[in-house]
């Protein structure tokens, strides 16, 4: 499958799963698990940073349109798309891994722990930014902390499960940089 088709399918599927399955999960403290950000996690290394941000904006805007309050998810998605290259730079196991492999995965990030750190930091960032925007309008501080923590934990759990269920075979393309 070409990169384009693959990403379009991912985009549509993740938005549908997020809105029609996960948004209907009612946990206490109004905690919602977020899994649609996997689209941003799985974007290929070689997309330019501008393109990454535009795609992230479209992703967030699509979910916002379903939820009828534009801006919130778009803002959080743009933030993690902006931060993503910095985290990848820090976490990459050795120089050139981003050209040897197509996209971030357990293998290309060099194991389970680095990948979890990568996903964890971005999920935490996404959730705290999102809930902060909501808390600015109403809500109190402790609720914000509790919501962010629990949402991040549950999202991360789902992300790990998704990662193990749909393991993406990453070909080692070349060892020349």
């Amino acid at each position: 499958m070409s990169t384009l088709v693959k990403n379009i399918l991912r985009f549509i599927l993740l938005i549908l799963v997020q809105f029609f399955v996960l948004d209907r999960v009612h946990l206490s403290y109004m905690v919602t698990p977020y899994i649609y950000i996997l689209f941003i996690f799985w974007m290929p290394f070689n997309f330019s940073r501008t393109l990454q941000m535009v795609l992230a904006f479209l992703l967030g805007f699509a979910l916002d349109s379903f939820r009828h309050n534009p801006g919130f998810h778009a803002s959080a998605c743009v933030l993690i798309a902006y931060v993503r290259p910095f985290i990848i730079n820090i976490m990459l196991p050795h120089e050139g891994a981003d050209t040897n492999y197509e996209e971030p995965s357990l293998k290309s990030m060099g194991g389970f722990i680095p990948y979890i750190v990568y996903a964890g930091v971005l999920t935490l960032l996404h959730n705290s930014w999102l809930f902060m925007l909501e808390a600015l309008q109403f809500g109190n501080f402790w609720e914000f902390i509790v919501k962010t923590l629990f949402s991040t934990l549950i999202s991360l759990l789902l992300i790990i499960i998704a990662e193990l269920l749909f393991s993406r075979k990453q070909k080692f393309r070349t060892n020349t940089i």
């Binding site: 904006f57 967030g60 309050n69 801006g71 778009a74 803002s75 743009v78």
Partner: peptide, 10 residues
């Protein structure tokens, strides 16, 4: 992009 998002929210 962030400014645009905040604009949408507000």
């Amino acid at each position: 992009l962030q400014v645009f998002c905040i604009y949408l929210i507000v």
